[in-house]
Write a protein that binds this DNA or RNA. Structure first.
Lengths: 192, 192
DNA sequence: CCGATATGAGACATCAATGTCTCATCTGCG
DNA sequence: CGCAGATGAGACATTGATGTCTCATATCGG
């Protein structure tokens, strides 16, 4: 049954291609299919055998990013312990996907009109629920809506990934910078 | 001297075209030169008479955005009073340019390799100086670098403009959302 | 060794956006 | 009115990316 072998081998290679493409497009969002193929060490023809076209590739990257974000969300256990600590865990877990997130974040406006992957709605809902939980247990302020906090988190992740890739801030500071700004803000606390 | 009249009239029309293009590209960053021309109520030929090409148009929008940001920075008087209050004034003044800023923010990665407009360096420096002033007078925490706070401000402005244009948050909340998150963070203060 | 399958290389047509050009028309001014 | 400059409409070539195709080659399993 060559079908089974075919499927298996393709899946492995497909994943490798996908991750190469993610790494490249994170740095250069306008990279050509040819450049993507070269970056993955395959020919353009083979790239097309894996992904019908650029659109399909971006969609696959979107699915990958969604899967990684949901996995990060799972690992972060957003329903356990303090909401602030959960946010810290989440940012730490999602850091590796931030570059891809930033790429898709700007690519999304290209999908206007077309339907969005419903995975984003799931993630948005889980993030908003985390912020809402923090509000309800008194940890977070209530004048900033969960929806806005969710959008702001995306924006800070994208900014952080961009600033790191540009060398303007150190990669090791990524989590700290984002978490501290998102949770504590720039104002110095009297207590600490 | 038709040259004088010519220069004057072109300047007026050019500004109108520029603002139409900004309004359109803010909503649809991939708009065609044809769409930009239609949005400005002129023909594609006339658009090309004003701006040599798409690149020149984006550069002109960049210059416009820089001018508006610097004007906002001037009006906000970042060197007067508390740094926190100065940031509030700044965000309020820069709000109208946030959409254009978001467009150029994602367009910038297209300019990789090519030299950046030095205006951004001026603005970056003024913003970083404001945050540094806040750190030095004890208002702001010192573990978040002025460079990161500057990047984060850009990111929040872009996220805010995007969220507003998508209808996910109310336009009237724009300034409050960004300022409060940037300065105070999501955590509820004991004092208030 | 043989055959099936995947791959690489490259030719080729397509397509969309762009930049350039011409020409008819309009407008304002003398 | 008559002219110069600006405009609109549209044709045209160019360019870059894309998608499709063919064929020779490499690889792997039987």
């Amino acid at each position: 049954m060559s079908h089974l072998r075919y499927g298996c081998l393709m899946a492995v290679d497909r994943d490798h291609v996908l991750r190469s493409a993610a790494a490249l497009l994170t740095r250069k969002s306008t990279a050509t299919m040819d450049e993507v193929a070269k970056a993955a060490g395959i020919s353009r023809a083979t790239l097309h055998r894996h992904f019908a076209g650029r659109d399909a590739l971006v969609r696959a990257l979107e699915a990958l990013c969604i899967a990684e974000c949901e996995a990060a969300l799972d690992r972060a256990r957003p329903d356990e312990g303090g909401a602030g600590d959960a946010v810290r865990r989440l940012v730490r877990e999602i850091e590796s996907a931030a570059g891809l997130l930033a790429f898709l974040y700007s690519e999304n406006q290209l999908f206007e009109g077309e339907q969005q992957n419903e995975g984003w709605a799931r993630i948005d809902a889980r993030l908003a629920a985390l912020f809402r939980r923090g509000q309800e247990n008194g940890e977070f302020r209530i004048d900033l809506s969960p929806v806005w906090l969710t959008e702001a988190l995306y924006g800070l992740l994208a900014s952080g990934a961009w600033a790191v890739s540009e060398g303007r801030v150190a990669r090791n500071d990524f989590t700290h910078m984002i978490v501290e700004l998102l949770l504590g803000g720039a104002t110095r606390r009297e207590g600490s």
